[in-house]
Design a protein around this nucleic acid. Sequence first.
DNA 1: CTCGAACTGAGAAACGATTATCGATTCTCT
DNA 2: AGAGAATCGATAATCGTTTCTCAGTTCGAG
Lengths: 122, 122
Amino acid sequence: MRARSKQGKAIHALLTEADGPLSASEVWRALHASGVGLATIYRALKRGVEAGELCEATLPGGQTRYEPAGRVHHHHFLCSACERAFDIEGCVPGLERILPPQFAMTGHEIVLFGSCSDCRDR
Amino acid sequence: MRARSKQGKAIHALLTEADGPLSASEVWRALHASGVGLATIYRALKRGVEAGELCEATLPGGQTRYEPAGRVHHHHFLCSACERAFDIEGCVPGLERILPPQFAMTGHEIVLFGSCSDCRDR
DNA sequence: CTCGAACTGAGAAACGATTATCGATTCTCT
DNA sequence: AGAGAATCGATAATCGTTTCTCAGTTCGAG
């Protein structure tokens, strides 16, 4: 196993410190100024998922978002204005009560929509 | 205003009778045997949204799904095997309790994942 | 019935997201 | 330092989805 490259460290650090899952292009927006190419970002994200260090967040929207694996169960807030996703702690009980019996549930995702603090005033 | 065409009626009927929101390609799979072209489906879906008769379901996945507008509040089940979406009646209370105060919530979506009845045995 | 507007099917084109390719660079081990 | 493998950045290519174009058809008011 080879050590993580400088670029790989930067990508991983960005995802770890972010307020929520990031898409490849969001990572690129943050890092291309320091010379990181888009292909490198896609490669690092894919490698991260294969290595079990990252996982894909299943949110609405055209692009895959990534977050560090192994986080405690949480959900997401999606800002309709800036399209950013934010982590939300906690969950709600009673989901199995609305599940019809013919389905076998393996997971769930709750997405709250609205405006984030940066966009709510404007 | 012109009356709905034969094709438009078929598309609307399909969406109304479906178990959940359908994507353009799902509609096409159901109707191309009767000679309906893919472009017609995209045009009818877009027209339906503009006319307020249809709305887009905001679910994870690469394609937009459509359902008749004006349905009572409900959520969706997404089969991981066949990728079909199904309507689920009901909702759960307490979502506002997990919303951090810096966000302004305008809506929410709950997606349950798992296997539908057709896929759970295989 | 006649005309023009709206609609159609087929296929080409556009689009955004992602992946593959290239030669150059960096890393790790010896 | 030197060899070989992994990674890099740039860019071309690919992929699935959606839109556009065009010539032919259908609708509906007059």
